[in-house]
Deep mutational scan, measured.
Amino acid sequence: RSRTNFTLEQLNELERLFDETHYPDAFMREELSQRLGLSEARVQVWFQNRRAKCRK
């Protein structure tokens, strides 16, 4: 699998939701992934990586 390149719109939406909650539930992830045209797994990994970045 190659690296996912997020569009600016996708990143803005992901960051907006991250500001609301660092741990979106499965329903939120599924709804977001459909809206952004990403797989739920990519959304989940993005949040994992974003939380790690936040801890640094």
Rank of each mutant, 00 (worst) to 15 (best):
R1I: 14
R1L: 07
R1G: 10
S2R: 11
S2E: 15
R3V: 15
T4N: 15
T4H: 10
T4V: 06
T4Y: 10
T4Q: 09
N5A: 07
N5H: 05
N5K: 13
N5V: 11
F6D: 04
F6R: 04
F6T: 03
F6A: 04
F6G: 01
T7K: 02
T7S: 10
L8V: 15
E9F: 09
E9N: 05
E9C: 09
E9W: 09
Q10K: 06
Q10D: 08
L11N: 12
N12T: 14
N12Y: 05
E13I: 05
L14Q: 06
L14A: 00
L14I: 01
E15L: 01
E15C: 03
E15I: 03
E15R: 03
R16D: 07
R16P: 02
L17C: 09
L17T: 12
L17G: 04
F18Q: 01
F18D: 01
F18C: 03
D19S: 15
D19F: 07
D19C: 14
D19M: 13
D19H: 08
E20G: 06
E20F: 05
T21V: 07
T21A: 08
H22P: 13
H22S: 09
Y23A: 07
P24S: 02
P24G: 02
P24V: 05
P24R: 00
D25I: 02
F27D: 14
F27N: 14
F27E: 14
F27K: 14
F27Q: 13
M28R: 13
M28I: 12
R29T: 10
R29F: 06
E30L: 13
E30H: 14
E30Y: 15
E31M: 07
E31Q: 09
E31D: 08
E31G: 09
E31T: 13
E31I: 03
L32F: 06
L32W: 06
L32D: 00
L32M: 11
S33R: 06
S33W: 02
S33T: 06
Q34M: 06
Q34G: 12
Q34L: 07
Q34N: 14
Q34Y: 05
Q34R: 14
Q34W: 03
Q34T: 14
R35Y: 03
R35D: 03
R35F: 03
R35G: 04
R35Q: 14
L36Y: 04
G37S: 12
G37D: 10
S39Q: 13
S39Y: 02
S39N: 06
E40G: 13
A41L: 07
V43S: 01
V43E: 02
Q44R: 13
Q44S: 13
V45I: 10
V45C: 08
W46A: 00
W46C: 02
F47R: 01
F47V: 05
F47S: 01
Q48S: 08
Q48C: 08
Q48N: 12
N49S: 09
N49A: 11
N49K: 12
R50Y: 00
R50H: 07
R50Q: 07
R50M: 07
R50D: 00
R51W: 01
R51Q: 03
A52I: 04
A52F: 03
K53T: 15
K53I: 15
C54Y: 13
C54T: 07
C54M: 08
C54E: 13
R55V: 08
R55Y: 05
K56I: 03
